[in-house]
Design a protein around this nucleic acid. Structure first.
Lengths: 205, 205
DNA sequence: GTGCAGTTGCACAACGATGTGCAATGTACG
DNA sequence: CGTACATTGCACATCGTTGTGCAACTGCAC
């Protein structure tokens, strides 16, 4: 048990990954899932999980960190060197969606678990850059909303969650979801539906 | 202790209400708040809470039932005898907002607690009527969206939550929030921003 | 096969939460 | 005052979870 944390056997690595994968799904189903539930679902014993992660919090932290990093990277990459706010928003939504599709469950978890505090804190930089972008669009008149930019950023975020939830519930095919999410976000920001549709279609070809 | 549940003293009633009020706030701060936390926050002893509610689940159930009933009533009353889908949506959002303002905390709680299953089930009829209304609007061409009506209903719901969260976080004055929520919901449904604004202003005078 | 890292199974202490029992205290109302 | 009911404070059993310790087992590599 002593070298479990340092050593790197193929078996150990595979287990570690499986535990992370399963924990993701299990924690979504029940944010308060116990270490035992997670371990059993992963096909190992509780004690083994503690061999890989020193505590429950460490496990969740790893999960959250991975997701947030991937998400922030996609978010930044999506709008790199794009001046038009509408296009930047569309690109970033599509980019985020692409990777979020794998983390969809975790991101959805974010809004209902107690760990939300921690997640929102870590997402703060992403949200900040969103607010800036939205503000720019509002200033230029590309966007128009009854809400100030910071509140609009909340709406932006929640729309993403809503579309993810719709996919999870089978109301929407995953293939179209990204485009739909982008169009809906733009529409909510006051971009005419036709323009939003055309823009996203152009970007997602 | 035996007659605590049946008897109706003014004191007992006041306590019961205070417990419910405080539990609302406390459970939002921490969905896993213990009976002891709630009791202390309400200025009573844990044992007293059990005098009014036989179990933790019963307490939460009461809270949820109250909120859902009020919400469903407002939702239905809002669109009573209105044929124009846009106006119906605007009216119902405003009506729901008005009462939700009191239950804002609980409604926000709905999206992050484990009890979510139960809440979503109970909200099913409300959502169903929302889907019908949205579908009608899409058919008539009053609305336009990249999403099918059921998914759009999710977006509708989440936008409400987003605006509530914005108010909770001080990003938006409560006085304007209702109007803003209504306009944003309409905008996301594809109604041009100017039309949405005019309509809501007319209704909320 | 010998050894070593990972895994297992069990045992344990510690903690916090739930729900209940009961005697004592407080308080409204006739 | 005295009755009735609400509240309190404490005790208790029970349960689930976390994190740790340790000995035995498994499988892979050398």
């Amino acid at each position: 048990m002593s070298a479990m944390t340092t050593g790197n056997t193929s078996r150990a690595d595979a287990n570690r990954r499986r535990i992370l994968d399963v924990a993701l799904a299990e924690l979504l189903r029940d944010p308060d899932a116990s270490m035992d539930q997670i371990a059993r679902a992963a096909g190992v014993v509780r004690r083994t999980v503690y061999g890989h992660f020193p505590s429950r919090e460490a496990l969740i932290s790893t999960l959250v960190d991975d997701a947030v990093h991937a998400l922030a990277a996609a978010h930044a990459a999506g709008r790199e060197g794009v001046e038009d706010p509408a296009e930047a928003v569309a690109r970033s939504v599509l980019a985020v969606w692409h990777i979020a599709d794998r983390y969809r469950l975790l991101v959805a978890l974010a809004q209902r678990t107690v760990t939300m505090q921690g997640i929102r804190e870590r997402l703060a930089p992403v949200r900040k850059s969103s607010v800036e972008l939205l503000q720019r669009g509002l200033d230029q008149g590309v966007f128009s909303s009854a809400l100030p930019a910071p509140a609009l950023a909340y709406v932006h975020e929640q729309i993403m969650f809503a579309v993810m939830e719709a996919v999870n519930d089978g109301l929407l095919p995953p293939s179209e979801a990204g485009r739909s999410a982008a169009v809906t976000v733009l529409t909510a920001a006051g971009v005419p539906a036709s323009l939003a549709g055309a823009l996203v279609t152009r970007l997602d070809g």
